[in-house]
Amino acid sequence: MARQRTLRLTRRTVTDLRASLPQVADRTVSAITDEVPSYSEAFTGHMGETIRGAVELALGGFLSLAERSRGAEQSPTAVAADGAYQLGRGEARSGRSVDALLSAYRIGARVAWREMSTTAVAAGLDAENVGRFAELVFAYIDELSAASVAGHGDERETTGRVRQRLLERLAAQLLAGADAEAVERAAEEAGWPVPETLTAVLVPDSQARAVLSSLSPETLQVAEPVEVHGEEGLAVLLVPDVHEHRRGALLRALEHRSAVAGPARPWSAVGDSLARAVRVRELGRGPDSEAHLAELVLCADPVALEDLRARVLAPLRELRPGSAEKLVETLRSWLLHQGRRDAVAADLFVHAQTVRYRMTQVREVLGERLDDPVAVLELTVALGTLDPEAWAAQTPDDAG
């Protein structure tokens, strides 16, 4: 705290100022209580006495500094500066903002200066030294407030890191299926309100921050990215209470991102939500896992599905690849559109007569199978997720 001019205080002035400190501290605390709402309760009772004593100690430190002032660069004593720093940390732990803390300092400086300058003038302090006294008072308060702000920021940063580690541990416990008591205990320790449901989201780690900005602040992020089907660097987010109509907002947040949202599940079963998101990711689909349920079921046992295709499509495999592809494509559309010829024609961008001609060929190959409900079911399953062109390009060995 640099000062360019020497402050000269007589012994009487110092004596009178020290005698006034208890009264100055009382009036300072009273003014802060009246003017800063967040301190109205904090300064009552035993805590109020403690703070009043701290204010008196800080003012006493200032007087000691002023008394030995000789114009050199001066700063608050180490004790006063450390006390201000610790005050800032305590205010952060109490949940009060740095704005409230700075308001308290401004009010405190105003009241302290008014009271102390009145006492100093009454004790004979001349006009020139009153100005120098004011400089020293406000410079001293500025440095104490700066120390408190630093303490407040350090505490918030430390608290944030600690809570982040607690939240990451909680996310791991949820995915590991830890018992309810352990999860609830970890949630309480982390200050995380236990939701009704959780929805697992897979998103590239590079996009996670942008997605999180659109989601609930209580969304959990798993500490380490995961790998899915050889794809590395996927972040896992656990989003609370986006079930039913609220799911739409989540899906909008994932638009134009390479993300997959699993289903909403009770928080104790969020591992099931992640498992489904992983399966949809493996299929190359998204962002809504629930839009691909039929495909998930059909692809649950890929080996069995290939065996089924090989058996029920064997008669068509005997045709030339080009013909086989067109007939399989037509049969697939015919089954999915329940035989409605115009709908099939629109789907394939061909004339309705072309559909009729191709289906006649299919019946010649498959015969009475198209009238057998079991055979129709097998064909529907076999063709449900089939790419006719890729199938036709397979060699007999490839097709099993």
Rank of each mutant, 00 (worst) to 15 (best):
R5H: 11
R12K: 13
T13Y: 01
S20Q: 14
Q23E: 15
T28F: 15
S30G: 09
E41I: 04
A42C: 00
A42R: 13
L57I: 01
G60A: 02
L63F: 04
S64C: 04
S64L: 07
S69Q: 15
E73A: 14
S75V: 11
P76H: 05
T77M: 06
A80G: 04
D82M: 12
G83K: 07
A84D: 09
Y85A: 06
Q86A: 08
S94G: 12
S97G: 14
D99H: 10
A100C: 04
S103W: 03
Y105D: 07
Y105E: 07
E115D: 15
S117W: 00
A120M: 03
A122W: 01
N129H: 15
L136V: 06
D142T: 10
D142N: 12
S145H: 01
E155H: 04
T159W: 05
R165G: 10
L174T: 08
A176F: 02
G177Q: 06
A182M: 03
A182N: 07
A182R: 14
E184M: 10
A186Q: 12
A190G: 08
P193C: 06
A200P: 06
V211S: 10
V211Y: 09
L212V: 10
S216R: 11
E218H: 15
Q221D: 01
E224L: 10
E224C: 02
E227G: 09
E232V: 08
H243G: 13
G248L: 11
G248A: 13
E255M: 02
H256R: 15
A259T: 03
V260E: 09
A261D: 09
P266I: 05
G271Y: 05
G271Q: 10
G271N: 08
A277C: 02
A277P: 02
V280M: 08
R285P: 00
S289N: 03
A291I: 00
H292S: 12
A294P: 00
C299S: 14
R311T: 12
V312L: 08
E318A: 15
P321G: 13
G322M: 04
E325P: 02
R340C: 00
D347C: 10
L348V: 03
F349M: 11
R356N: 03
R358S: 05
V362H: 00
E364H: 07
R369H: 07
D371H: 12
P373S: 09
A375C: 04
V376I: 14
E378K: 06
L379V: 04
L386Y: 05
T395S: 15
